[in-house]
């Protein structure tokens, strides 16, 4: 595992991370099981340090105050509080049973009245439903006509098919990097331009991904190699057809690329 991830996990175990650093760690750990386990491991190791602090008996009144707060939260729907045998809770149980019996009787008396009302309401509902169905059909016709018009306008304007997105990073090392994607949604291909990107380690490559909300995983759009100045301009086409593009992402992967993302995402957008 990369040292900088271990570093973030260690600082996190002590609650030292704030803002971007915390968000970065959480984001990476969400997809990286090994990092998630390391975080849990180090949190536990840090917690063990509490064992060497000298114990001190807290003032006796505190316990009463805590129990009082828990009881009062019970009314607010928190976890049930049962002391198992106290007179107070026994009486409360009987009171609840009595209230339940009274409610049942009241419900029985009201049942006939409610059934009559229900029949009347059902008949009114049928009339309303018929009117609603008629309105719905009218609206659907209008929507269909508008869709046809929009499709026609989109076809006329080629620019409507072009989307421009900028990719950004919350990781310090890549913050200087500039990445712009121009995506043609009709031809399903695009151009990626990178500037000021740091070089990747030996044996690694940058790899571009297209996120299609209709597909279970990001779609491979090919590897990208930057020159010594961190510059690259490449045309790309995802390996499988995408119907809709929500995001583009750039990750660091094994040299030559991988079919499914494994490495850390360093740039993402829009």
């Amino acid at each position: 595992m990369e040292e900088r991830f271990e570093e973030l996990a260690a600082l996190n175990a002590f609650g030292m991370l704030e803002g971007n650093e915390k968000r970065t760690l959480d984001g990476i750990a969400f997809h990286n099981r090994a990092l998630k386990d390391l975080c849990a491991d180090l949190e536990e190791a840090a917690a063990h340090l509490a064992g060497v602090v000298a114990p001190q008996v807290p003032p006796s009144a505190i316990k009463g105050r805590i129990l009082q707060r828990i009881r009062s939260r019970r009314a607010g729907g928190s976890a049930a509080y049962s002391s198992g045998g106290s007179v107070f809770w026994t009486l409360t149980g009987w009171a609840a049973a009595a209230a339940f019996a009274a409610s049942s009787a009241w419900l029985w008396v009201g049942r006939e009245r409610i059934q009559t009302q229900l029949a009347s309401v059902s008949s009114e509902l049928a009339v309303v439903e018929k009117a609603r169905e008629s309105l719905r059909e009218g609206f659907q016709k209008q929507i269909d006509a508008l869709k046809v018009e929009i499709a026609s306008l989109q076809k006329r304007d080629a620019l409507a098919q072009v989307r421009i997105a900028t990719l950004q990073s919350s990781v310090d090392t890549y913050k200087q990097g500039v990445a712009v994607v121009v995506w043609d949604s009709e031809k399903h291909q695009g151009v990626l331009k990178l500037e000021k990107m740091p070089p990747v380690e030996i044996g690694k490559d940058y790899q571009l991904w297209v996120v299609d909300p209709n597909q279970p995983a990001p779609v491979d759009a090919g590897i990208v190699r930057v020159d010594d100045a961190g510059f690259a301009k490449v045309e790309f086409k995802p390996v499988t057809d995408v119907t809709e593009v929500s995001r583009f992402a750039l990750s660091v992967e094994k040299q030559g690329g991988v079919p499914k993302g494994e490495g850390p995402i360093v740039l993402i957008g829009p």
Partner: peptide, 16 residues
């Protein structure tokens, strides 16, 4: 929701 268990656990953990 066992308050007796909570009571015991408090006595054990609270000092540390």
């Amino acid at each position: 929701g066992d308050s007796r268990a909570f009571d015991t656990l408090y006595d054990r953990l609270a000092p540390r």
